[in-house]
């Protein structure tokens, strides 16, 4: 397991009319291995851009990202990605989707099979291996996406609004699953979300990001993820300290929104 280090990352998009969009400005942080970081912020704050830079899909215009001693220059197996939806391969069965990574690397067939069965059980899809992707519900598809990501045994799991397309009940179940997986595997997880509650509940660390230019506004260490593993989710989300934190973060985001609105009105 390796620590992730982000140093002075800048991301500037050039717009055809000559002006620049500052998607990320001087973003720096260190993330110890095994932590669960959630990224929260209003749209345009660069949280998805940051995630894509960490995944290696985008090259930052300045600064660098290192995992352990390696500088990140492109996508790699040590950083798995879970997308919101539609990233599964419909032409493959559940089993073959999960085995995609190992198969690409020419892994031993019998070993892969055993690993896939194990992963199916871990994500609660035991016995669904030979089902087709389109036969599964949205929640089940995200379970497959998680298992597929885990099959390569990455150091870091990046999630881009993985539960964004799910209904409320499924979403709650999946949140619990993510916490359990995090606990069991001890992997570093970075999760982008739009939901304040989800960010607080899942994040063992939380960045609230601000737009124009995209930056980390506030850095929280949170106790809820650790607690959530042992206590009832509903109860914890109703606890006074959770509500207090939620209101704090919400008002922070509302301020940003109002600032944006004010600025656009000024223009």
């Amino acid at each position: 397991m390796r620590d992730l280090s982000v140093k002075n990352v800048e991301m500037v998009y050039e717009v055809p009319n000559g002006s620049n969009v500052h998607a990320l400005s001087n973003v720096s942080f260190d993330l110890a291995a095994g932590r669960l970081l959630t990224l929260l912020g209003p749209s345009g704050c660069g949280k998805t851009t940051l995630l894509n830079i960490l995944a290696g899909f985008l090259a930052p215009t300045g600064g660098q990202v290192t995992l352990g001693n390696d500088i990140i220059t492109g996508p790699g197996q040590e950083r798995g990605m879970v997308f919101q939806q539609g990233a599964l391969f419909e032409w493959l069965s559940v089993e073959k989707n999960i085995a995609f990574g190992p198969n690409m690397n020419g892994a031993d067939k019998a070993q892969t099979k055993a690993r896939v069965d194990e992963l199916l059980d871990i994500v609660g899809l035991g016995g669904f291996g030979d089902k087709q992707i389109y036969e599964l519900s949205g929640g089940m598809q995200q379970r497959v996406a998680l298992a597929r990501c885990l099959a390569n045994d990455p150091d870091v799991i990046l999630m881009d609004e993985p539960l964004g397309a799910l209904d409320a009940l499924t979403r709650e179940k999946m949140q619990k699953l993510i916490l359990e997986l995090w606990q069991e595997t001890g992997k570093t997880v970075i999760l982008v979300t739009h939901s304040v509650e989800e960010a607080l509940y899942l994040g063992d660390r939380l960045f609230v990001m601000a737009p124009r230019p995209g930056r980390i506004e506030r850095d929280y260490d949170l106790p809820f993820a650790e607690k959530g593993l042992h206590t009832d989710t509903r109860e914890m989300k109703a606890s006074p300290e959770f509500i207090e934190k939620r209101e704090e973060v919400l008002s922070l985001i509302w301020e940003m929104e109002e600032e944006i609105m004010g600025r656009t009105e000024g223009v």
Binding site: F57, M81, G86, M104, N105, R148
Partner: peptide, 28 residues
């Protein structure tokens, strides 16, 4: 979709594998 292609790359697929195992079946 971009996410399918990106997913394949981050799962360790080479360009050739992305073409054979993702783009081709996806274009069927």
């Amino acid at each position: 979709s971009l996410s399918k292609v990106r997913a394949a790359y981050s799962l360790g697929a080479s360009k050739r594998q992305v073409l054979q195992k993702v783009l081709l079946p996806n274009a069927l």
